[in-house]
Design a protein around this nucleic acid. Structure first.
Lengths: 201, 201
DNA sequence: AAACCGATTGACTGGTCAGTCAACCAGGGA
DNA sequence: TCCCTGGTTGACTGACCAGTCAATCGGTTT
């Protein structure tokens, strides 16, 4: 009784971690459940002991990570000094998530966030939560007179989030370099671009 | 001989147009080749008379549209007055493409541009062409002293394109309103945001 | 009218997998 | 010692579907 639950949790985790690797490598659609089991070093059937279906494995991965993201943005909102700092903290969290675990972020973005026909629709409400939190930061900034008022906050949040995600996509696709310095630079440039704009002041 | 080729072309077109509708409705992965044939009102086998595979149907749709996009951006670059106007024309073309044929743009974005594990990889080179053209507009703007020089053009182009695509995604997902006025507003706000920034001048 | 040929049809096949299930194993309690 | 329970195994099945192909159709040429 003292070790059984631990072992169970370990196997479940083992399966989730293996799934990240395989999904990242082959994509969700072309990974077989047997690929996950093999990668995790467990029997095929065990995947179904812990998860209702192959979909449910991805759902779980998404939920785990996305809830952290939502929390981080809300925290940035609560604790940031300026709207600009709040945006920087939010973008920073996402960039750092990628830096820390690129495979997981790749899976989440490619298979969920950007998959409008499948998992994207399933998790639409949770994804919107993130947009909404960013929109709130912008709206508060406008109220405080720090941001111009002629740009709709929802629109601004989409543009900002879109820019962030496109950067990650660039790293994922390997069309832009992804060294440590690039990540730090990206965080700064993202906020500079959105807050200050391309034209000189 | 006078009508046969025309009829052939018509059937081919009929199949492509039907595919757009079905892909947009159900997504590429959950549409059966028989769905396309049914929607087009032709026999199953005829799809394979005109296309090597189901993939090839989507490839063709993408190529047709994306080449127009590349052309439009390059033309905007050649004929635009200011870098800002060039960016506005580029974003405008994409937004108008969506306004004119939302189903086709949905398919292209969801199934190709954002599908890093499947068609996105296949068409990576063509997709990059678009990024590169935008990056060139930014770089020229910097050279002319109209854009600040401390933001990497490649980075700026990713942010800009990401913002555009995220907007389209918002319309596709129906998380933001998509009336005619919204499209026009979006074009203007996109450029304002990227060029002027969120902070007041 | 007969041969020809490309367009068109749709039944069929081969291969692929997600999910099921009956059996097995380990270790804790009676 | 012998159940009992819950984790663990992997062979198996039923459904699904992309792509094939032999047959048919309709118009053109000789």
């Amino acid at each position: 009784m003292a070790k059984a639950p631990t072992a169970a949790v370990d196997k479940r985790r083992q399966i989730l971690d293996a799934a990240v690797r395989v999904f990242a490598r082959q994509g969700f659609h072309s990974t077989r459940v047997s690929d996950i089991a093999d990668e995790a070093g467990v029997a095929y059937g065990l995947v179904y002991h812990y998860f209702k279906s192959k979909d449910e494995v991805l759902n779980e991965l998404f939920r785990e990570r996305w809830s952290l993201l939502i929390t981080a943005i809300d925290e940035a909102d609560r604790e940031g000094d300026s709207p600009r700092a709040k945006l920087e903290a939010s973008a920073g969290f996402i960039v750092d998530s990628y830096r820390h675990d690129p495979e997981l972020m790749k899976v989440i973005i490619v298979e969920v966030t950007r998959a409008a026909n499948s998992f994207g629709r399933t998790h639409l409400a949770e994804i919107r939560r993130a947009y909404d939190s960013i929109a709130k930061i912008v709206a508060d900034g406008q109220e405080a007179g720090v941001f111009r008022r002629d740009i709709d906050p929802t629109f601004a949040s989409m543009a900002f989030y879109g820019a962030v995600e496109q950067l990650l996509s660039g790293w994922i696709f390997e069309v832009i370099p992804a060294a440590d310095s690039d990540f730090d630079e990206a965080k700064a440039l993202l906020v500079t671009t959105i807050c200050d704009g391309l034209e000189p002041r």
